[in-house]
Nucleic acid binder design. Structure first.
Lengths: 240, 240
DNA sequence: TAAGTTCTTATTGTCAACAATATATAGATT
DNA sequence: AATCTATATATTGTTGACAATAAGAACTTA
């Protein structure tokens, strides 16, 4: 019994539980990622509890979970605040992604079933089609992560998948939202994804890892260049 | 104002906060790692609250934090249970370590100060001395992780450090405790650590990363061999 | 006797009040 | 006027009681 391909939409709406605590986690998480609660802003428990129509118990549990996702920082007896994504933190995040997703690509080349590889091709094809149909339009970044997600899942490593898809992914989403003014239009990602699939099809873990690492490292470089300028301009962030 | 070198002991006793919730987290964490609460065992909230002399509130927060550390699994409306470290999970953990600590070693080669490198040498020297003074005795595994810890910290990447030292490290500790009957006596780790320092001193990120990855991959292989046998015998687990 | 069903019990989820701590304000002192 | 101190306020930490859900026991039925 194989699971149907899971899209990014399914991940997002992944309702881990129907408990108030779980629902509040989702609501609060989206509020933070979307910037409804600003970076650096304090999370006032009574106010938020009122806002989400729950008591402070579930709200505090939600905050704890967001701390685990690194969207929130917490100091005892002082409170929780939304993280501020400094350039330094983002670059750190991309170094971690490079390491983890690189390994994921290697494992995917070893472990992905032929069927999963076909699914991956389908995702890429959809992606390419969209780019052709909408030339000059910014990439659908979710489609991009769909691709990465399939590879991560294809690694067969549950710990790796949890770390990337459940935790770090939301940090990435938050960063993307904040920098959505830099709309990426490059089709370089498409080419690099194509190369990656080829390496996986060839069952070449080393090549797959190398390609994924370069892919992410390139995005990191683009981010550094784009954000270290005071006037950022519409630079291509590499869409990763 | 530079911080004094932090040993593994300091990490362990790192009292993040004096709150009941924080204290309970530490106590419960140690109870799980030491096996006082068995793998697979259910965490009964009223009983544990009674046992730790706190109400269920702080206890539940502690459980949430241990879920983030992956020491505990939680199902809504059912409860929390201590993780059972299957061979598969351990191998997954070591693949993640290989990726993350490999990158950490590369970054350490780039970023560690000359002074930090000297400290690292001192740790290794202490380690070597202990091995010479107690030939045939099992390695002080804490000393081993002291070495790894220094390198991780030396990477200068806070996210990486948090992931390895605050989260995954406790899983490793739990695994080590459970397999402490396999006392590692090899001095291969010592040799490999020596090579690693050399690479870092030479400011060679690629070599440092390669050496660290091989170091951990070798430990993974040793674990697989030791634990896939029904009668494990006293195999060298590589002490990583 | 075995399978299914209802009822009981135990456990988790949630709430609102209370206690402890930190922040903000106002006043006193140099 | 600026700084330190003491008080007042707001916020976090903690508790025990209540509600909702799931696991287990006893009963019924084939």
């Amino acid at each position: 019994m194989t699971k149907p391909s899971e899209t990014i939409a399914e991940i997002k709406n992944q309702v881990d539980d129907k408990t108030l605590s779980g629902q509040t986690t989702l609501a609060l998480r989206e509020a933070i990622i979307k910037g409804d609660i600003a970076p650096g802003e304090k999370l006032n428990e009574p106010k938020l509890a009122e806002q989400f129509q729950v008591s402070r118990g579930p709200l505090r549990e939600a905050i704890r979970r967001l701390v685990a996702m690194r969207l929130v920082k917490h100091v005892p007896h002082v409170g929780a605040t939304v993280v501020t994504l400094e350039l330094k933190s983002i670059l750190e995040l991309y170094d971690v992604r490079e390491a983890l997703e690189g390994k994921a690509a290697a494992l995917a080349a070893e472990n992905m079933s032929q069927q999963d590889i076909e699914k991956l091709r389908a995702v890429l094809e959809l992606h390419r089609q969209h780019s052709e149909d909408n030339p000059g339009q910014y990439m659908q970044t979710d489609g991009d992560f769909d691709f990465h997600y399939q590879i991560i899942k294809g690694s067969g490593n549950q710990l790796l998948t949890d770390q990337l898809c459940d935790e770090l992914y939301h940090l990435i989403r938050m960063f993307r939202f904040q920098t959505s003014r830099f709309k990426s239009r490059s089709n370089r990602a498409l080419i690099e994804h194509e190369q990656l699939i080829y390496a996986i099809e060839q069952r070449d873990p080393q090549l797959a890892e190398m390609l994924m690492r370069k892919h992410i490292a390139r995005a990191k470089t683009a981010i550094k260049q784009a954000l270290s300028n005071t006037e950022p301009a519409y630079t291509d962030l590499g869409s990763v």
